[in-house]
């Protein structure tokens, strides 16, 4: 076991990990931050996406030791300081961008990364950027709508097919 130190949602944290401890396991089991979901555990589904130094990564496919010293943001870090839902989270609720909610943490983290890079994406940009995030419930239309709405664009013309 070795000690790993990083900043998670603005807070300095450390814990004992094995070489093989994944970032997803460190967050969930080590820190109790179970908002980060593990779906496929094989880097296919994107449910486990978190930001490492501002960039989205699949936390099931990164070792905790490899991000020693990094700044990590998880879904728990996306709410407003007063505990209300953040802009992207609120848009998912308003536009029915979730059903069972399993994919939602990863969707929100990927969507937030897209909007940081590209504040006014087109529908095609959103669909392309979310290619690594799989949803088994919604059929994606309302997710795309939520992301466009979170960017401040008018989505009244987009049908929920």
């Amino acid at each position: 076991m070795t000690k790993v130190t990083m900043t998670v949602n603005g807070r300095a944290v450390s814990g004992e990990v094995e070489g093989r401890t994944l970032l997803s396991a460190f967050l969930r089991e080590g820190l109790g931050l179970t908002g980060t979901h593990v779906g496929c555990d094989t880097s296919q589904c994107g449910a486990c996406v978190v930001h490492v130094d501002g960039q989205p990564v699949k936390s099931c496919t990164v070792f905790a030791s490899d991000v020693e010293g990094a700044s990590v943001t998880t879904i728990e870090g996306m709410a407003n300081p007063d505990g209300t839902l953040g802009r992207v989270q609120q848009a998912f609720q308003d536009h029915h961008g979730l059903q069972c909610g399993f994919c939602t943490p990863g969707m929100v983290m990927s969507a937030a990364a897209l909007l940081a890079e590209n504040p006014k994406p087109t529908e095609a940009d959103v669909r392309h950027y979310l290619e690594g995030n799989i949803c088994r419930c919604t059929g994606y239309h309302n997710i795309v709508k939520a992301v466009l709405a979170a960017s401040g664009q008018d989505v009244s013309g987009l049908a929920a097919e």
């Binding site: 994107g46 490492v52 699949k58 496919t61 990927s110 990364a113 950027y129």
Partner: peptide, 9 residues
């Protein structure tokens, strides 16, 4: 290649 998260790693 792949998706944004794959490209970042």
């Amino acid at each position: 290649i792949g998706d944004p998260a794959v490209r970042n790693r």
